[in-house]
Amino acid sequence: MADMAVSPTETADEGGDLLLWILVWSELVTFGILFAGFLVVSFFQPAEFAAGKLQLSTRLAGFNTVVLLASSWTAALAVQAGSNRRLQRLYLAATSVLGLGFIAVKIAEYSAEVASAANPAFGSFFELYFLITGFHLAHVAFLTLVLLLIALKPRQQNTVMATTIWHIVDLIWLVMFPLIYLG
């Protein structure tokens, strides 16, 4: 009977872990549905989507991939810093700064593309482009704020949770880049 006893801490950890993975998969499923929608509509409007894609800046998007991956690295370092709160705070702040960099580049990219959005020659391309990348950008902005708040008073459990979602947002961008900009 004693073998079956579970400490309250262990139960809380497992509960947090389960919640985290539910959150991770709900993100992947949501973006998966959006990507599938993009692929289906592109199948029905191939010429419009091919023309729309040419209006996008692969240079800025490629640069943003590097920025986001660098932020993912600092996020992983924040988890590894563990009990060294000063170092953890530094890495979390660095991740937030890189997140802000991603947002700034994306806004610059949008400002050049917004003029093309109303052009009917591109079909539904820009509606879906702004919907998918905008939803992703909202995730980056929200998590940047969350990471900044955690950096003020870091706790390992919060750091692990926020950085795991950050990695997922990074993973989503890695797939989004070839799907929307190149393929």
Binding site: S57, R59, A61, G62, W73, Y181
Partner: peptide, 24 residues
Amino acid sequence: SANWVMMLAIVGALIAAQWKHEAV
């Protein structure tokens, strides 16, 4: 791993940047 990831990302970004406003 981070070194590899960054290197691959930079290589990928540089390759993609060669096709500005044209089909890849």
